[in-house]
Amino acid sequence: MLSTIVKPLIVALLLAGPAAAHGAFVDVEKLDAVGIQARYDTGAAMAGAQVAVFAPDNPAQPWLTGMTDADGRFVFAPDDRPGRWAVQVRQAGHGAIGYLEIGADGVASAFIAPATAAGLTWTQRALMIASVLWGCIGTALYFRPTRRIRQA
């Protein structure tokens, strides 16, 4: 008797799950972000390449993984751990690693930008460094400060 009541109740609760919620929320906040751009020595973008980001206090295990976009770009927002962050980009047997130093004051500086072979021009290097700096400053716009949005 009990079973005939309890079992359907449990099933109903399980099925209810997410549907029991009556709304969804998106919290949007402004963050400092870092952008990288990966390219081959031919100048071609490393589109769709594997990206692994390593935090300073656990440099052997990826803190974040992802993929570059069609222009070889990847944007991430490191947390407040100061030290040397590393960003590794790999694709089809080619790979490179770049580093970013984040000070205790949260200011970032790039050491080596990801690229995959010798022969880069100074223009290309400047472009890559500019890309990183753009990531530190300009990406704040990407994460616009807004109010909480509710979708019912």
Partner: peptide, 12 residues
């Protein structure tokens, strides 16, 4: 050569 690049980071 710089840092090893592969499936996992090495040399720690």
């Amino acid at each position: 050569c710089g840092e090893y690049v592969g499936e996992a980071r090495k040399g720690f």
